[in-house]
């Protein structure tokens, strides 16, 4: 993974800890040791035991060079990578079965921005949607701004609505990461308008 500019042992371990924190506390913004965060997350999770779909040539080459890239169509893959709004529908991804829900896909979005306090951000009008989550890991509710259109986030909420079957979403922007696992119930507000 040095091809991606990260240490294969310590950067992936730190990335895992950030993911661990982010997943157990949905909608909190965590820091990854290296940017871009989607490369760090893929390097931490992907190997030949899981199938992967990515539009990112650099990432694909770096993984394939170590024999860790098992290609699959998005609808079959265990780990699905997207840059912004993907051409496929997140509702069609693998959600696992009731007996083994952990076979549901992990979907990894590279987005433009992530803000822990979207109400404060009057600078950022570039499609930051406000997501409110509740459920395990969230004391009451928690709010986060994610740089994706509301329609895509609502599709993710749909894909998670069958929990415990469902997909787990990870969003990265630079070295920031936010996770919304299927255990969370999320509601999406309209994009923040610049006034």
């Amino acid at each position: 993974m040095r091809a991606l500019g990260l240490d294969p042992v310590h950067d992936t371990r730190e990335t895992f800890r950030a993911l661990c924190d982010a997943t157990s506390r949905p909608a909190t913004v965590r820091r990854l040791p290296v940017a871009p965060g989607d490369h760090a997350v893929a390097a931490t999770l992907v190997d030949h035991e899981v199938t992967t779909h990515t539009p990112d040539d650099d990432l694909r080459e770096a993984l394939a060079a170590q024999g860790r890239y098992e290609a699959a169509e998005p609808t079959d893959a265990d780990i699905v990578h997207a840059r912004g709004v993907p051409p496929w529908d997140v509702r069609d991804l693998e959600r696992g079965s009731l007996v083994e829900p952990s076979e549901g896909a992990t979907v990894l979005y590279r987005v433009e921005s992530l803000e822990s306090d979207p109400e404060d951000e009057d600078e950022d009008g570039d499609g930051l949607s406000t997501v409110t989550v509740s459920g395990p890991g969230v004391p009451e509710t928690r709010t986060v701004g994610i740089g994706l259109p509301a329609a895509e986030l609502e599709a993710i909420a749909d894909a998670q609505s069958t929990a415990p079957r469902g997909v787990d979403a990870i969003f990265t922007a630079g070295d920031r990461v936010v996770a919304i696992p299927r255990s969370a119930s999320m509601s999406v507000e309209a994009e923040v308008e610049v006034v």
């Binding site: 895992f16 997943t23 157990s24 952990s102 890991g137 415990p164 696992p181 299927r182 255990s183």
Partner: peptide, 9 residues
């Protein structure tokens, strides 16, 4: 990570 995403499973 999957265990955290599906608590108790």
């Amino acid at each position: 990570l999957k265990a955290i995403a599906v608590p108790g499973h």
